[in-house]
Design a protein around this nucleic acid. Sequence first.
RNA 1: GCACGUGUGGCGGAAUUGGUAGACGCACUAGACUUAGGAUCUAGCGGUUAGUUCCAUGGGGGUUCAAGUCCCUCCACGUGCACCA
Length: 797
Amino acid sequence: MNEYKKIEEKWQKRWADEHVFEASNNSEKPKYYVLVEFPYPSGSGLHVGHVRSYSALDSLARMKRRQGYNVLFPMGWDAFGAPAEQYAIKNHIHPSLAVKENIKTFKSQIESLGISFDWSREFSTTDPEYYKWTQWQFLKFYEHGMAYKAKKDINWCPNCKTGLSNEDAAGGVCERCGSKVVQKEKEQWMLRMSDYAESLIDGLKDTNFAEKIKLGQINWIGKSTGAEVNFKIKDTDEKIIVYTTRCDTLFGATFMVLAPEHPILEKLKDKIKNMDEVIKYQKYAKEKTTFERTELVKEKTGVKLEGITAINPVNNEPVEVWIGDYVMMGYGTGAIMAVPAHDERDYEFAKKYNIPIIQVIEGGDIDKEAYTGDGIHINSGFLDGLNKEDAINKMIEFLKENNLGNEKVNYRLQDWIFSRQRFWGEPIPLVYCDNCGWVPVKEEELPVLLPDVAEYEPTDDGESPLAKITDWVNTTCPKCGAHARRETDTMPNWAGSSWYFLRYMDAHNDKDFASQEALKYWGKVDWYNGGMEHTTRHLLYARFWNQFLYNIGLVPNSEPINTRVSHGMILGANNEKMSKSKGNVVNPDDIVNEFGADTLRTYEMFIGDYEKDAAWSTDSLKGCRRFLDRVIRLQNKLNDKDGYTDEVIVHKTIKKVTNDILNMKYNTAVSSLMILTGAYEKEESITKDDYKVLLSLLNPIAPHITEELNEQNKLGEMLAKMPWPTYDEEKTISNTFEIGVQVNGKLRGSIITNEGESNEEILKKVYELDNIKRNIEGKTIIKEIVIPNKIVNIVIK
RNA sequence: GCACGUGUGGCGGAAUUGGUAGACGCACUAGACUUAGGAUCUAGCGGUUAGUUCCAUGGGGGUUCAAGUCCCUCCACGUGCACCA
């Protein structure tokens, strides 16, 4: 065991024994809530990527504590989900056992890094004491009509045998196993997340997320403003409602396209002459996965509904009606008006099936392609002569007045499919009674525990493994006492992580998910770090969940998080994502054992821009170890003097490190400490104050070795409890400057100037430089630019 | 296709927001100390030149006394969303 490791274990124990990092729920100090995403404790153990974000936020938490804040910096485990279940299936043991083991490993790994987590608030989403409240909150959704069961064509993973949310099936493949997702009709519990679309956009203004994170949220919600237009079907009472963002082109609508599964087809089936063909096409479309349907390269297909004609509401012209799989039932109304002259997709379709194309906006060459730009409207009756924006407004007025349609906002965000056909998740706490229908489990009966069995295989018919456990399924109705059956679906992995940050505020409360006092005291998460891959979905789910709790009066803020940051990945030395198969995985344990946790932490802070990916380099890591060794050696040159040997560099460094930690510029914080160390090395000897301030500033990054050096040299109390150094702005500025001297913008020399020196004095020095004399010889000086403390530029001709 | 990012030495990356480009570290070279060094110290380290000479921040153009930084344009790479009507 290396010397570093011994020291590290000593201090880890000391901090724990003295409860140094435990936050208080009633403190006079201002609060500060620092949060890192809790990990999924996988079997492969901690990744060096975890170390990066934990170290980074640890340095923030440690600094904030020393600046006088009551800091909450908790850690827990997001442990429901497929991997633990897969492991359980294979080995016929309960997933909770595997989870327990993995948590143990993860925790000891994190502890060996000396991260200042408040372990007194630790929990796992799989603890019954925790998921009781996840279930309780689900019942709140249910009580408020926000949870409902619906038969839906859902994304189905035939390999995992489970339903997936749209989010989990992005790209048409199962996020977990990569299998092709197919459509399957199933009853699913849904949360009315789409009701919150507008408020999820709106709430972003109350956050301090990075612009690109806000944008990710906005794009995912996918708001679009347009209009719904009613098209009557000739010789029937039926109408088809379409959604369009370009109602100004209505005069150019020559056909309509319905999604193949559009419900109106059923109503019109007697009138459709080619129903055989239609049914055949519907089958064809259904067999395809969403992914194949949305493949861009694919040629458009469709079937004309023979015998059906719609009427264009603005000019009463007949309009052909088609079905085509390029129209999705899940967006808008599942029907579009097609304007081939001004929409690329409609253009392609019209060309293929020889449907008339009418240009209604000037511009482009519609013999070749659709024109989608702005322009003057033509062939458009009362819109003629208007541009796009005016035409849209006028058309909406017209539609409203004539009862033909309305303005309409649409969102891509859909309701959250909340059912999973899995064993290892929170059971949905409802029972079905033949008399009473769905009935919530009584609050005092929560949590609905997962049964203790040994078979976890999902069934082929799409039921949860829980369905086979009849002892568990059979129960009595909480309302009427008759025989009833438990819901066997469980919640998605995202459920437990949607509110865990609230639980940390009052982690062991058995009366409530957290007391109102605790929720009020801690308020929002001040600083939340996580991976870029979670910035859209997890954040959206958590915000939705919290907004709902806010609306029913259970939490004090509608937005739960103030600042959100995300770290870049640590890649393998070959610049590729670390993976076992590529053999480029670095195990943090090995690094801690060989070089020490402080070295690893310092290196990962120094590795580069925190938000960007960075490749691992053991050579650079060694450089950081060398740096710490140099800091250790400095203790041999302490003298008996007081104060700082060089005030300017010390105050500058305090300022730099303080601001850099706040601004996530950890790499330059480390670099400025290296510079300070280098400056000390050049001195004959340094004072204890010099040394102490270096250790003090380095402490949030390399906490163990700095504590040890501080103690051994009797510099003062434990650094973790020592107030953070402050700087004096005036003392950060030196009173002499070496500034560059340019001639016509080209550097020709440099001079030393003093603070407050006049331009005349400066220029006098400039013209004494040989190289300046040489360069201006025989030329006319046009201008002399003197920027004090920065630069001099002589313009000549 | 749309949106957002990013392009700086051999490498990771700095640059007080328009003011001496390459901080800091790695790698490398030479030297010192040494039985030895993969320890430590000292010096050097973008290219080029006789030269503090000239050229250099993806390419081209522009604004300015001054551009890595601002504007226009093109190129390359990355990420997200994707037939969104």
